[in-house]
Amino acid sequence: MKEQLQALESEALAKVETASSLQELQGVRVAYLGKKGPITEVLRGMGKLSAEERPVIGELANKVRGNIAAAIDEKKAGIEAEQLEKQLEEEQIDVTLPGRPVAVGGPHLLTSIVEEIEDLFIGLGFEIREGPEVETDYFNFEALNLPKGHPARDMQDSFYITEDLLLRTHTSPVQARTMNAMENKQPVKMICPGKVYRRDTDDATHSHQFTQIEGLYVDKNVRMSDLKGVLDRFAKHMFGEDREIRLRPSFFPFTEPSVEMDISCKMCNGKGCSVCKRTGWIEILGAGMVHPRVLEMAGYDPKVYSGFAFGMGPERIAMLKYGVDDIRHFYTNDLRFLKQYHKA
């Protein structure tokens, strides 16, 4: 009986060994381990055995069953792994083919520039104010120390709607409006981005519509060195930490003293090149200390309050920063232009 079991074992193991599919393997399992299989058959004849032999053969039979079952499981795992491998091989794709496109949009370059500047000034404690694009002559000119007949009104030929209404020529009226609206004449610390309009024929450097950002800080003891410090922060943030600024005297009716701010030319590092017209400096914005007349008209006592103001053109900043060569690009909305500046 012992020999019979051992023969069955080697016979089964050989069949397991040669099995090449899961079905074949299942056949072996049913044939040898099933209820009608030869091992069961052998065990049925155990009654004839002596009491000493019975446990020995029983143990041997269980061992044989175990060995066959283990061999079958092992073989099964092998076949399954082989099959999976084959399947995976068949499932291979060409990963170099292009993916399914995702629609991608983005902000306009002017929005990116404006928001970058907004965020910088928010960090310095400024608020953002907005104002109407159709302005009264009073807020656009008079409240900014530009009375009727003032020669400086020539500098900015305007789009009038009626004698008293015009498209604002700068965002400066928002200064006056904000100060006027301030109850108890508290300090004002704001910037105002927005669209402005001037009677210019559209060409590479002129646009009848463009963008401006106005800044204003009015408080007790505001110093011109504060203006210089804030503008320096701005210049380094927008154009790089290694940029230098310089202020040079200029004239605006609503500030006194008035200055223009230049940054050192990035192209030549201040040595002089064609971009900076060989001066080493590039003009960025106008600024100054708020004119006492402007403070007075807005209800602030110029003996108690002082302030600084600045105004800049995001188009110009974008043109310098990204080398945009024609201001009309900002308003044609050519997707080939817009998409260059879609970024996170």
């Binding site: 907004e118 000034f121 928010i122 960090g123 310095l124 404690g125 400024f126 608020e127 953002i128 300090p187 610390k189 800080y217 408080d219 007790k220 003891n221 505001v222 110093r223 011109m224 060195s225 504060d226 210089k228 410090g229 804030v230 320096d232 922060r233 310089r246 202020l247 040079r248 005297p249 200055v259």
Partner: peptide
């Protein structure tokens, strides 16, 4: 000379600033 003006930051009130 504007070059001789120091760089300072506003000392006044510390309003928070921010977007509405």
């Amino acid at each position: 000379g504007y070059d001789n003006l120091p760089f300072t930051l506003p000392q006044g009130g510390s309003q928070a600033g921010g977007l509405t």
